[in-house]
Write a protein that binds this DNA or RNA. Structure first.
Lengths: 210, 210
DNA sequence: TACTGTACTGAACAAGCGTTCAGTTTGCGG
DNA sequence: CCGCAAACTGAACGCTTGTTCAGTACAGTA
């Protein structure tokens, strides 16, 4: 319930309090192994504090999980609030490019996002809803603007594009395995986007086989 | 190490031994909540046996997990071994339709498959590799046959199609949430396949905006 | 200096976990 | 019938887990 307004007014850089450090470690460890596999003692060791301090600050392990979810969702919200124009132009086909550009290369946030989406809890559902609504609006706008072929089922079309986007996060490791390039790395992203754009503009299947 | 050959020769229907019943329950519970969240006692209660019997038959909880993985992978292999012609024709765009047709409607297998793929363990990686290889071969065949537009990066194209397929399993709940139809139900599948085929043949984006 | 609230710790607790084991029941060949 | 291996159980063990709690260190205030 205490938000960042309770912290003393530090102008540019937060003083990296133990509380923030704990959340940072939790984010990293949760992303790497999943919250269930990470113990409070693991996080305490990572943050160089006692396990009791974590409970002191966040009430319970679940409280820390919730705080981490909120933190990531907040970052994601900030990315989603970018003007939609930035999404449509350049090689940035999708939300993924924007998200990757907004987070450092070794950030655990994409990985954590994957877990959040697949965990089935409301935070992930809300996140997907926002993502879908944004894509849905984009489909309408682009269709009206003549940049997109009209679809008889725009909801499915938006979900189709979103799912395609998401699969890069969800299947990152597997795609890296079969393609040889991490699809979320600059090189891998370029390969992926190039072929995806080609598929989306030139089509994949021929209408009939002459 | 003891395979099904050790069971007595029952002609049509396996006698549903306690051992099989345990695996069946494990499959259901693992799919529903994830192996980490399911205790040996949970599985024992589901199968109406003592926890000790599970360890007697499978050695350890990990042994049961491995056995369940193998069982699901075996079913999946049987689906993948279907002739590729069956995949290309009709509304069955993809592996998903074949898989769904091969399993009962309320089967926990698709859900378990999702967990297997995302768990990061070798069983899931092997499975994805097979899936990819099949799709990769399909891309070549369909391109030679003139049914598919040639791609400059066929590996990515195959991964792209596979990922699109997989996203229906991975995002099943979320897609059902935003679309109102479970994409793995007959109705939802029809909606999805119709729009996906449209996108794949007519394209999504226009080449230029006149 | 004395007071107070917050950050923080070490040690312990209760509960739940996977696993073990001695022992009982069951089924089957001799 | 006996004997023996396999199926199966109840009760416990050791360990890890999240959590609690009494107490310490330290800042800010009067």
């Amino acid at each position: 319930m205490t938000d960042s307004a309770t912290t003393p007014p530090s102008p540019a850089e937060p003083p990296a309090s133990a509380r923030d450090h704990i959340l940072e470690c939790a984010l990293k460890l949760f992303a790497a192994s999943g919250p269930d596999a990470v113990t409070v003692r693991d996080i305490a060791a990572c943050a160089h504090v006692s396990p009791a301090l974590i409970l002191h600050h966040y009430g319970s392990k679940q409280g820390l999980r919730d705080a981490t979810d909120e933190h990531v969702a907040g970052i994601f919200d900030a990315v989603l609030d970018m003007p939609i124009d930035a999404v449509t132009q350049d090689t940035t086909v999708s939300m993924i490019g924007v998200l990757l550009a907004a987070t450092p290369a070794d950030s655990p946030i994409p990985t954590y996002l994957r877990r959040l989406i697949l965990s089935g809890d409301p935070a992930g559902r809300k996140l997907i809803r926002q993502w879908f609504e944004l894509t849905r609006r984009y489909v309408d706008d682009a269709t009206v603007a003549g940049a997109m072929e009209p679809s008889t089922d725009p909801d499915v079309r938006a979900a189709f594009l979103m799912a395609n986007d998401l699969s890069m996060i969800l299947l990152q490791d597997h795609l890296a395995d079969v393609l040889g390039d991490d699809p979320l790395s600059p090189k891998g992203l370029e390969r992926w986007v190039a072929d995806a754009m080609d598929a989306y503009t030139s089509g994949v299947f021929r209408k009939e086989t002459p």
